[in-house]
Computed example of a mutant assay.
Amino acid sequence: MKAPGRNEPCWCNSGKKYKHCHRDIESKPPVEFHAVIQALKSFEKSMKKCSVPISLLHECSSKIINAHTVSKSSSLKAISKDGHVLETSVDSKTSAASKIVIKEIGINKASVFSGFCSVHDKNLFAPIEDGPFRVIPLHCFLVTYRGISKEFFSKNYASKVFELMKTLDRGKSLHHQIAIQAEAGRLGTNNDLTTNDLKYIKSKLDDMLISNDYSGLNYAVFTLDSPPPIMGSAIVGPTFDFNGNEAQKISSSPSQIPDYMAINSFSSEGDGYVVLSWLSEHSKTCNKLMAQFLEKKLTADSLAVFMILLIENFYISPSWWRSLDDETQSLIISLYAQGVEDDTYGDSIENRRPLNFPSIKNILMSPMI
């Protein structure tokens, strides 16, 4: 690629002139590892804020806490071993290709984010923290609201990381500069699209919170006969259905929001729950998925595969994991890798090995389909 003139726009589309952007950047010292760590820590500090609607911010305390998206006392504790669960993560090292790892984490640190103040974390979620979960609109809303607040928080954090990524081409050859800028731009653009979608969805949930009217939220609650050995929270735009076929087309236009579904897996008083929820306006795709699940008479193992494919961070019962044979463990890791390391393949939803998930003892949908 021929370098632009000094006063021409930079090739990286930053909007800056070439002389103020990438000119001579290959001769500058590379970004030191400690500088990256310091920047990430500063992001964490700056991101601490309460996720409630603006009209409720006057009630906030000054203390932002590490809020759990999966309850520590009623859920994580139920599947823990010596105060620890297992978590999925991607081990990215500069000297080797990324790989999926399963490692221990203490339940005090699992599923936390600094997205609520101490007042709102306690008061808002008291109905599902201080008593048993019930399949009623309020409880399903609170589970959904907390999970989506976490996802919105994470996407805003990721946007800062992708901006930081753009600075990592200092001291690199032009070839590497182009590669780094292209990947940072691709990831940033995709993240921005999802962030805008979640901002819209959260605004709808904020309205429900303020009005105490949850009629705009649809849900399907699967009650299991014991705590699910995989717990987590996510919101996704499903691209495949339970037949392994395309569920919907995802547009790259910010004005065309796909149908999103929130997924929450947890336990309460000995029972397990998987709550799938969505805005009423996203019912087309979500209702189709639920109709297929019921028509095919699928089991909780299919729910497990659905969660493994779509939840980016989930927590695993150590006892359950160690009870699985090597082939089943490898299957779970390969399913999780889809969407993390490569594309998600719809036919993966057709589970071919038993995962020994607890049985479904009840399914309740609102509204019924």
Results as ranks from 00 to 15, higher is better:
residue 155 K to V: 05
residue 198 L to A: 09
residue 79 I to L: 03
residue 330 S to M: 10
residue 25 I to K: 09
residue 226 S to C: 04
residue 142 L to K: 04
residue 290 M to K: 06
residue 166 K to P: 01
residue 1 M to L: 09
residue 83 G to L: 11
residue 31 V to H: 01
residue 30 P to L: 04
residue 36 V to P: 05
residue 293 F to Y: 14
residue 214 Y to T: 00
residue 101 V to L: 07
residue 271 D to S: 15
residue 265 S to K: 05
residue 211 S to G: 00
residue 90 V to E: 14
residue 279 L to V: 00
residue 14 S to C: 12
residue 115 G to K: 04
residue 217 L to N: 00
residue 100 I to W: 12
residue 10 C to G: 11
residue 217 L to H: 07
residue 78 A to I: 00
residue 90 V to F: 07
residue 28 K to N: 12
residue 273 Y to L: 09
residue 148 I to M: 08
residue 322 R to N: 14
residue 128 I to Y: 00
residue 259 D to V: 02
residue 36 V to D: 00
residue 42 S to V: 02
residue 366 S to N: 13
residue 85 V to C: 06
residue 134 R to N: 14
residue 340 V to N: 14
residue 311 I to T: 14
residue 259 D to M: 07
residue 147 G to D: 01
residue 291 A to G: 04
residue 130 D to R: 09
residue 276 L to E: 06
residue 188 G to M: 10
residue 84 H to I: 03
residue 3 A to E: 13
residue 193 L to R: 10
residue 196 N to V: 02
residue 184 A to N: 06
residue 87 E to I: 10
residue 141 F to G: 03
residue 236 V to M: 11
residue 194 T to Y: 11
residue 89 S to I: 01
residue 229 P to T: 02
residue 180 I to K: 05
residue 229 P to W: 04
residue 21 C to L: 07
residue 124 L to P: 02
residue 141 F to E: 01
residue 197 D to I: 09
residue 346 G to E: 07
residue 296 K to W: 05
residue 15 G to H: 04
residue 300 A to R: 04
residue 107 I to G: 06
residue 272 G to C: 09
residue 268 S to L: 09
residue 287 N to H: 13
residue 70 V to F: 06
residue 223 T to Q: 15
residue 274 V to A: 09
residue 363 I to T: 08
residue 254 P to G: 01
residue 194 T to K: 12
residue 200 Y to A: 03
residue 313 N to Q: 12
residue 240 F to N: 08
residue 49 K to L: 11
residue 150 K to T: 00
residue 141 F to K: 06
residue 87 E to N: 10
residue 309 L to I: 11
residue 146 R to L: 05
residue 129 E to Y: 05
residue 177 Q to F: 02
residue 72 K to T: 00
residue 245 N to V: 03
residue 10 C to D: 07
residue 41 K to T: 10
residue 223 T to D: 03
residue 279 L to P: 05
residue 162 F to V: 05
residue 329 Q to I: 02
residue 195 T to V: 08
residue 242 F to M: 11
residue 288 K to I: 03
residue 83 G to M: 06
residue 81 K to P: 03
residue 70 V to L: 02
residue 277 S to W: 01
residue 161 V to F: 13
residue 348 S to M: 08
residue 269 E to A: 15
residue 62 S to P: 01
residue 233 S to C: 14
residue 226 S to Y: 04
residue 73 S to W: 08
residue 131 G to R: 14
residue 349 I to S: 10
residue 340 V to E: 15
residue 214 Y to M: 05
residue 221 V to H: 01
residue 67 A to W: 04
residue 122 K to M: 01
residue 42 S to L: 12
residue 187 L to C: 10
residue 295 E to S: 13
residue 136 I to V: 12
residue 42 S to C: 03
residue 143 V to M: 11
residue 50 C to N: 08
residue 155 K to Y: 07
residue 350 E to F: 04
residue 86 L to H: 07
residue 291 A to I: 12
residue 265 S to A: 15
residue 10 C to A: 02
residue 330 S to A: 15
residue 193 L to Y: 07
residue 341 E to Y: 08
residue 323 S to Y: 03
residue 77 K to Y: 11
residue 80 S to R: 04
residue 149 S to L: 03
residue 362 N to L: 13
residue 22 H to I: 03
